[in-house]
Simulated assay, not measured.
Amino acid sequence: MAAISVHTAVLGGGRPTLPYAETGRPGAGRDGTAIVLVHGYVDSWWTFEPLLRRMPAALHAYAPTQRGHGDADKPLDGYLPDDFAEDLIAFMDAVDIERAVLVGGSSGGVQARIVAGRRPDRVAGLVLLGVPAALADKPGVAELWETVRKLEDPVDRAFVEAFASGMTASPMGRGFLQTVIDENLKAPARVWRETLRGLLETDLRATLRGILVPTLVVWGDRDRLLPPEDQRTILDAVPDSRLLVYEGVGHVVYWEAPDRVLRDLTAFTTSTATRSASTVDGA
């Protein structure tokens, strides 16, 4: 069981201060195998707790909580995917990560792939865990927006419980799920609203362009939000990509199948480090 420590990253330049969880042996990941886990809509670093506590010491993993979410600063604006992507680069600068494998969970994969496309010098590889190609075309998301746009503080706990519990194909442990719900409730109504508005009004398919780093796409075949065609769109857009399908698993694969995710993530990270070293040696 890995030890998880929680710190604070001061991004500076008018950007928010972000808490982040960290695990792994000090100095691990200096060769480009550091891992940065990027959470999705209204989550916090806690969503990756099942992965973090299983993380081998050879991998150095970081999981920041993004602006407006959890215990991070909550500025009045800046909730477009581009804003989160810029924060992600600033976070890597703040904690001295030169290059990393970015792991995006759900909508967190949008800002991760924006960084991968724009700053390939900072990204050794990209892992997309249940990440949408687009959201505006999803009937379930349209229904969610009709509720979210009317939210007021305090956000209704029963609504959040229904939202979180619908993300998996099988029931989650009550203690973990309640922690996730508590973290979701730390996001004020305006963050629920403006973050989802940004995802719906941004051309998410355009954020798939220009990604040339190795990319692993993971999707659960019982994902009620994302159809298989959505993942095919990602594969068609990203040249160096491959798909792993988890049978019997829902939208949040890293909750339901953390051991399998970690095995696949470790293998992918090792392979990207080997490819990177081969490129350097052959240069």
Rank of each mutant, 00 (worst) to 15 (best):
F163E: 01
R193Q: 13
V101Q: 00
T272V: 14
D240V: 12
P50H: 03
L204H: 02
I89H: 00
D223A: 07
R174E: 12
T47Y: 03
L76R: 12
H69V: 07
G140F: 06
A164M: 09
G220F: 13
A100N: 07
E256G: 02
G68T: 09
E86S: 13
A116E: 08
G173C: 11
P188F: 07
G70E: 10
G68Q: 00
G210I: 03
L216Q: 10
D137R: 08
H7Y: 15
A158C: 08
A9K: 11
A164F: 10
L235W: 06
D31E: 13
Q231M: 15
L59Q: 10
A206G: 11
A187N: 11
V95E: 10
V180I: 09
D83N: 06
R242N: 08
V245W: 08
M1S: 12
Y62W: 06
W255L: 09
K74Q: 11
Y20V: 01
R205F: 11
L216H: 01
Q178N: 15
T33F: 07
G175S: 05
V115K: 02
E247N: 07
I35F: 08
A124D: 04
V155A: 05
E194L: 15
G104R: 04
W255T: 02
S271R: 14
G130E: 01
G175Y: 14
V103E: 03
A283P: 12
E98D: 14
A3M: 12
D82L: 08
S276Q: 11
T270I: 05
L80I: 04
D182G: 11
L225I: 13
R232H: 12
G27Q: 00
G108V: 12
R119A: 14
A57W: 11
T270S: 13
E143T: 05
L200Y: 03
G220V: 08
L216C: 10
R275T: 02
D182H: 00
G68F: 01
A187E: 09
G27P: 00
L265V: 02
I234T: 13
E86M: 06
A2L: 08
S165A: 15
I4S: 03
V249W: 02
D230K: 08
G117M: 05
K186L: 06
R232Q: 15
R149I: 12
A112G: 02
D240C: 10
L135D: 03
Q178S: 15
P228C: 03
Q231W: 13
A189M: 00
A206P: 06
P56H: 09
A63P: 05
R54H: 04
T233K: 10
D221S: 11
W255F: 15
R30H: 08
D96N: 09
R224N: 13
D264V: 05
G70R: 04
